[in-house]
């Protein structure tokens, strides 16, 4: 091969690489969620109501089986027959037809039965991370037309009706529910989703007791208490997440990834 054709080949390779990176970067597969002040159902501390959420990008839809299959094919240590028991329980990807193939008909369904470790590793392989709880809750507060629709009775009704729907045997494909204000879909009514700080919720088992939390078992001012008791679907998510351990998986537990954006965007 002469120098000229070599250079041409290298250029072609480089362009291919850049193109695939532009795709992986996902400027179309993720949506910009502009940050702001926000009242979470989990107040950050006693007497502090508002949370400052910085702008971030969030995947428009949950990670699908096909996407997760490509990940485990490239990273064999995350295949169900190779993963260390430290990082995933025995149900990890147990519904797939093989360690590297989801099987017929479920490619575009959200991947479920994944542990927090596996979800984190997937996002990291994309140069991303799991969203924090506050980021997830912030994005999920949006209806199709308003960034925070949580006090809108019509929106509350829509969200509640999703949660009261019986769990069907087959999950819908990702992206079937309407896009919200930010262009993000499937935050309600499809799956439960891992968040980066799932272990930070510290919600006491019995939230009706408002007495002094045990200051010694928890270093710091103690467990958080939950606000906005009418926000039932969100409280259900918190209850589920705080009962999880990082190696656990669940038949309806999936995830999507997020990335931080530079403060200039705000």
């Amino acid at each position: 091969m002469n120098g000229k054709s070599m250079r041409r080949l290298l250029t072609a390779l480089l362009c291919g690489l850049l193109a695939s990176q532009a795709h992986a970067d996902g400027s179309t597969s993720s949506a910009l969620v502009r940050g702001g002040k926000f009242e979470s159902v989990l107040p950050p501390a006693q007497g502090v109501k508002q949370v400052d959420v910085a702008s971030f990008r969030l995947d428009r839809v949950p990670v699908s089986n096909a996407e997760f299959a490509r990940f485990v094919q490239a990273h064999p240590e995350w295949q169900r027959d190779k993963v260390a028991a430290l990082f995933a329980d025995t149900e990890y990807l147990s519904h797939w037809s093989s360690p590297v193939e989801p099987g017929a008909g479920i490619s575009n369904q959200p991947v479920v039965r994944v542990s927090w470790f596996a979800a984190s590793a997937y996002c990291e392989s994309r140069g991303a991370r799991l969203p924090t709880w506050y980021e997830w809750e912030y994005a999920a507060a949006a209806s199709a037309t308003a960034p925070d629709a949580r006090r809108d009775p019509a929106w509350q009704q829509i969200v509640l009706s999703w949660y009261s729907r019986p769990v069907s045997a087959t999950l819908p494909d990702v992206g079937r529910s309407p896009a919200n204000y930010y262009g993000v879909r499937d935050l309600h009514g499809v799956i439960w989703e891992w968040v980066e700080d799932y272990a930070g919720m510290l919600v006491a088992g019995d939230n009706r007791q408002q007495s002094d939390p045990d200051a010694l078992r928890f270093c710091g001012p103690g467990a958080l208490t939950m606000e906005q008791k009418e926000n039932y679907p969100t409280l259900m998510r918190i209850a589920l997440l705080s009962s999880m351990q990082a190696r656990y998986t669940g038949p309806a537990m999936g995830f999507r990834c997020a990335t931080s954006v530079r403060s200039a965007v705000r």
Binding site: P44, A45, V48, D197, G200, M201, L202, R217, F218, C219, G220, P221, G222, A223, L224
Partner: peptide, 11 residues
């Protein structure tokens, strides 16, 4: 969990 005052709640 990080607290707004710079402290942490932790088990």
């Amino acid at each position: 969990r990080a607290l707004p005052d710079g402290g942490f709640n932790h088990s």
